[in-house]
Computed example of a mutant assay.
Amino acid sequence: MSSDSDLATQATCNDASTCKRYAVQKGYWNDPYISHMVKSVGSRKPPEINRGYYARVESVWILIKKFIHATERKCQIVSLGAGLDTTFWRLCGEELSPIRYIELDFPNVTMRKVQTIKSKTLLTQAFNTSENDTKIETSSIISNKYSLLPADLRDIELVEKQLKLAQIDFTIPTLFLTECVLVYMSSKNSNAILKWVTTNFENCMFVNYEQVNMNDRFGHVMIENLKSRDCDIPGVDVCESLESQRKRFQENGWDQVNCITMWSVYSILPQSDVQRMERLEFMDEQELLEQLLTHYCLCWATKAGESFNLKEIEL
């Protein structure tokens, strides 16, 4: 991937962050931390985009909480390509924080996030306690509870080095998170990540939110739009279907794999909250939402989770 494409990929972090803040401001879900992390809501977002982000955030949140409950918080979470995500602080706010939370992303992204965190007491107090030996540098934070480190995820040796620097524990249940991350690297590189996890952890779970059904006309338009912004998507071959998404996990050591479109996710989220959310904005054409959500999927996979009932985690 070229450096220009790397920068374009990092720019997608801004898009996702402003969309999330806009949706939170409209009342789609509660996140008291995102306004401290993201300065602008950007321009108005159409209802189908807001509902799509609602389904994305809520479904991943449900799986995270179920993982934490299944392990009785004796676990750790690793967010790869974390961007300006606020999940760590949301978990702390609900007293659900794991033993350790680690985030990795490109150096430009982590540098920006470090500067933001340093300037906000609400964000630093979540991990910077009197009992905590915290080290904050230009593009990294290392503490006992939360760490943020720079890494190119295509370099699996560097990923391992940074995770060890963050004091990752290979003996406890670990959840890995990726949201629209793997598609920006080749399937060889993403497979290396998935294989590295199952090779090094006995009890682990992986949650991946990403594009799917990219071979139809709508999918081709999505691809062209990304290319017009200089975003290379070398991993799009794995996004061909739900089956291709499942196969990548099955071939890299994952025992159980679930993969469904976000349209299916939308129908199984707690419907009382979905109805509350739908009252926030009128949406003229439901077909637009269905078309959008059938081109994204949520996959969650587990390995050797019998002792912690990880394989029983469902939406």
Rank of each mutant, 00 (worst) to 15 (best):
R90I: 14
I62W: 00
V181Y: 08
S139T: 08
E160M: 10
E224C: 06
C204R: 02
V207P: 01
T171C: 10
E278S: 09
S272I: 09
E240K: 10
T87K: 13
L7D: 09
E103W: 04
F127Q: 03
N191C: 15
K26V: 01
L293R: 05
F282H: 14
D230T: 07
C13K: 01
L310S: 11
Q76C: 10
C259A: 06
R21K: 15
V78W: 06
Y184R: 07
K20G: 05
L96T: 10
N208C: 13
E179P: 01
F170D: 00
Q250H: 10
Q162D: 04
N213V: 06
L80Y: 04
T178N: 11
D133L: 10
I156Q: 08
H220L: 00
S43H: 12
S130D: 12
M214S: 13
Q256R: 14
C259V: 07
S59R: 04
T18Q: 13
I193C: 06
I142E: 06
D31E: 03
S307Y: 10
E243S: 11
D133H: 12
D216H: 02
M185G: 03
I117Y: 02
S40N: 15
S228R: 12
S272Q: 12
A23V: 05
F88H: 05
L153A: 01
E48H: 15
A126K: 05
E243R: 13
M283V: 06
V24I: 15
M277N: 09
K311N: 14
W29M: 07
R112A: 10
L148C: 11
L288P: 03
M1A: 08
L310Q: 07
E290H: 13
I260H: 00
N252G: 02
L122Y: 03
V24L: 06
R56W: 00
F88Q: 04
S5I: 07
F127R: 03
L289K: 01
N50Q: 06
G42F: 05
Q291A: 08
N208W: 02
Q10A: 09
F218L: 14
E240L: 11
D133S: 08
R90Y: 06
T12F: 06
L84Q: 05
W89Y: 14
C231P: 02
T174D: 14
S272D: 12
E312I: 04
F170P: 00
F67D: 09
R51V: 05
P107L: 02
F201W: 06
L163E: 02
I260A: 00
M222D: 04
A8Q: 10
T87P: 00
N50H: 05
Y209C: 11
N225P: 11
Y53A: 06
L7S: 12
L226K: 03
D255C: 14
S241E: 07
L122W: 01
V24C: 12
E131I: 10
L148H: 01
T9Y: 00
D4W: 08
R51P: 00
L80N: 03
R276K: 15
R21D: 07
L96Q: 15
K227R: 13
L298K: 00
G27T: 14
D237Q: 07
E95T: 10
C259K: 00
I64M: 13
M1V: 11
I64A: 03
Y54M: 06
D6H: 12
E202D: 14
S130C: 10
D105S: 09
S190R: 02
S140W: 02
M262W: 05
I77P: 01
N309W: 01
V24W: 05
L163W: 02
S267E: 13
E240Y: 08
L7K: 12
R21T: 03
